[in-house]
């Protein structure tokens, strides 16, 4: 069976700087796939290229058999790929409910579907229901992350792209977020998860890729990646080192 999302030989440049070089990643229906890498490795660029936010230099993104290279971002959402961006990016001056409604913007005509999607999000994140009428800017960091994921789910995506959902969250919240990501996957959404928290990501994903300086340097089932000595040193063991080099 052809993969649901097939990224093949992707190259992206910002001016003279090459952010991604010949990156190939594929997702099969129903998987969680993780992309690991340090700051600046190109993880976010990869997700933004798939979402149409940054122009693709070379290579192709094929989703459900259709080429997505020149499709504008608003149309990519309509076709079923939704991104929860790095840093949450909720709209702070809009209420929680307005944020969620915008997540379903592509199907705003179908009121019943929007309501259904909102109910589903409230089941995953009950706190959002309580905070419904509050401005999103007044939520805590963890709540904003839940809102960002919930908002991305509102378009009922076939593929959910998650960019660092654990960034800056307390350990207990990190665990909760990862549990919910698994749950969303269990409900049938294919997930591409970009993370710095390699340990947690490898635990819930089935396969993984390691990105270094815009290139894929390793890939395979998570069990293999976890056993790989180089990956253990760089991404799993050296947490104290990472805390020093990545103050974020």
């Amino acid at each position: 069976m052809a993969p649901l999302l097939d990224i093949d030989g992707l190259c992206v440049s910002y001016g003279a700087i090459q952010a991604l070089a010949d990156v190939s990643v594929h997702l099969d229906q129903g998987e969680i796939v993780t992309v690991l890498g340090a700051n600046g490795a190109g993880k976010s660029t990869l997700l933004q290229a798939v979402s149409g936010l940054v122009p693709i230099g070379k290579g192709s993104v094929v989703f459900g058999g259709e080429a997505m290279n020149r499709v504008p971002p608003y149309d990519i959402v309509r076709r079923g790929i939704s991104l929860s961006p790095e840093g949450r990016r909720v709209f702070p001056t809009l209420t929680v409910e307005e944020n969620l409604n915008l997540g379903a913007y592509t199907r705003r005509e179908k009121k019943a579907q929007v309501r259904g999607a909102k109910e589903r999000v409230f089941l995953l994140f009950p706190i959002l229901k309580e905070r419904c009428r509050q401005l999103a800017g007044t939520l805590s960091g963890g709540e904003q992350q839940m809102l960002a994921i919930g908002r991305a789910l509102m378009s009922a995506p076939k593929v959910l792209l998650l960019d660092e959902p654990s960034l800056g969250l307390a350990p207990i919240l990190v665990k909760q977020i990862f549990d919910i990501v698994s749950e969303i996957n269990g409900q049938g959404t294919t997930i591409l998860l970009v993370e710095q928290n390699a340990q947690k990501a490898l635990r819930i994903a089935s396969r993984g890729y390691v990105l270094e300086n815009g290139r894929i340097v390793a890939s395979g089932p998570c069990s293999e990646l976890k056993a790989d000595r180089k990956i253990q040193e760089a991404y799993l063991g050296g947490s104290a080192l990472k805390a020093r080099t990545n103050p974020s």
């Binding site: 149409g52 936010l53 971002p73 608003y74 959402v77 990016r89 709209f91 001056t93 809009l94 913007y105």
Partner: peptide
């Protein structure tokens, strides 16, 4: 507020 994120919602800027 944030044009890039708005386009991720499916809004045609």
């Amino acid at each position: 507020h944030d044009r890039k994120t708005a386009s991720l919602m499916g809004i045609n800027i």
